Structure formats: C-alpha cells, structure tokens
Amino acid sequence: MLRSIFNNMLLKMQKRYDYDVRYQQDILKSGLGPFLKFMGFQSMASHAGSLPVDVLYAARIRAIIWDDCGPCTQLVVNMALEAKVEEDIVKALVDRNFNRLPEHLALVVRFTELVMAHNPEADDLREEIRSRWGESGLVSIAFAISSYRVYPALKYALGYGKACSRVMINNAAIAPGRG
C-alpha cells in the first residue's frame, strides 16, 4: 500500500517535470526503509529558510552543474523557472555569465564554486554571505550546495548517469558553463 502511494508520487513528479524517476523507483523497490531515508534527505534538500528564491537557486544550480550536466540540471532549472526565478537569471546561472548576474547572485555562484573546489578563498565570501543573509541564510546555502551534489552521485552509483546534454530554458538550449 505505501509503496503504491510513493510510486504514484514519483510518477506525478515524472509527469510534472518530464524527469526520469527510475532511480527513485529502484530505491523504493529495494525496500521502504531505504526509500524513507531518501525521503528524509529530501527535507534537507528542499530547505529554503528565508532566503530569496533567486539566491537559493543560484546555489542549487551551480552545485548540480558541478557534478551533472544533464537531467538533474534540467530538473533544477525547471524548478527554478517554476519558482519564478527570472529566465534571464536562470540562463546566466547555467552558462556562468557573471556579467548578467546581479552582484548578490554572482557572490553566491563564486562561493558555491569555491566550496565545491574546497578552496579556502570561500572563507572570505562566507563572511559576506553571513552578513547579507545571516547564519540561517548561510545554513540554507550550505544545505543547497551539499545536498544537490547527492542526486547525481546517487544516480551514477545506481547506473542512471547520463551523458552531458544542453539544458533547455524555455526555447533556448544552453550548455552548462563550468568554472
């Protein structure tokens, strides 16, 4: 009964975002325990706190691009657009165009990439983020960075990794920019 309910939830997500949920279905097939742990992880990944939506998606998009250049990135882009992040901002985040990003989003992109690279230069930017959005904002950004890396790793480990592909933003195809 629970498996059926969870599977229906996954199928709704698949339809809503045109996203392959087979890896999640495999987790569910392996047992309710592992699936419930995966769902528990989802609460961390979906945490936004009081961050503005564009700031949150700046961290999410750049974190997912670090480890994925295909369906996971497309899913996060679609979610950003659904959350009303401006299309031009999403494009600039995907192709890493600092000239088209407001200063606060460029800060988040730089911070995200320095954290992903384990670069100690992130320390200075961390303080700037903390001063702009407080400790809770820093935690929200940290959750976005760390949790959005899990999805590509999980998919690749389960055999669902995909080759790189262009990301569609409405009618425009963009190759994700790498730092």
Results as ranks from 00 to 15, higher is better:
99 N>Q: 11
7 N>T: 04
145 I>P: 00
20 D>R: 13
91 K>E: 12
113 E>N: 14
90 V>E: 05
74 Q>V: 11
71 P>A: 14
111 F>N: 00
7 N>R: 15
156 Y>W: 13
94 V>Q: 00
91 K>M: 12
141 I>E: 11
34 P>I: 01
87 E>A: 08
82 E>D: 13
114 L>W: 10
159 G>N: 09
96 R>Y: 12
167 V>N: 08
98 F>L: 14
73 T>K: 04
153 A>D: 04
148 Y>G: 03
127 E>L: 15
143 F>Q: 09
93 L>H: 03
136 S>Q: 09
174 I>R: 01
5 I>T: 07
38 F>H: 11
179 G>P: 13
63 A>Y: 05
139 V>F: 13
165 S>A: 15
164 C>R: 08
73 T>P: 12
111 F>E: 02
166 R>E: 10
67 D>V: 11
118 H>G: 11
86 E>G: 05
129 I>V: 15
60 R>D: 03
60 R>I: 14
117 A>N: 05
141 I>G: 10
75 L>R: 09
139 V>N: 08
43 S>N: 03
176 P>M: 13
10 L>G: 06
108 V>S: 14
125 L>C: 10
91 K>D: 07
5 I>Y: 06
45 A>D: 03
8 N>H: 10
3 R>V: 12
25 Q>I: 14
57 Y>N: 04
41 F>S: 03
17 Y>S: 07
105 L>Q: 10
176 P>F: 15
9 M>F: 13
113 E>R: 00
84 K>W: 14
42 Q>F: 01
103 E>R: 07
82 E>F: 06
126 R>Y: 15
91 K>W: 02
54 D>K: 04
146 S>V: 06
169 I>H: 04
35 F>D: 01
38 F>N: 02
31 G>I: 00
40 G>Q: 03
179 G>R: 07
98 F>N: 07
101 L>Y: 07
112 T>H: 02
76 V>I: 14
72 C>A: 15
125 L>D: 03
54 D>R: 01
39 M>P: 00
146 S>F: 11
75 L>I: 05
14 Q>N: 11
15 K>P: 05
81 L>E: 02
134 G>D: 09
6 F>V: 00
78 N>P: 00
1 M>N: 07
143 F>W: 12
127 E>R: 15
140 S>C: 08
82 E>N: 08
131 S>D: 12
18 D>I: 09
171 N>Y: 04
171 N>V: 03
23 Y>T: 04
78 N>W: 02
158 L>F: 13
149 R>L: 12
179 G>W: 10
44 M>Q: 02
140 S>K: 03
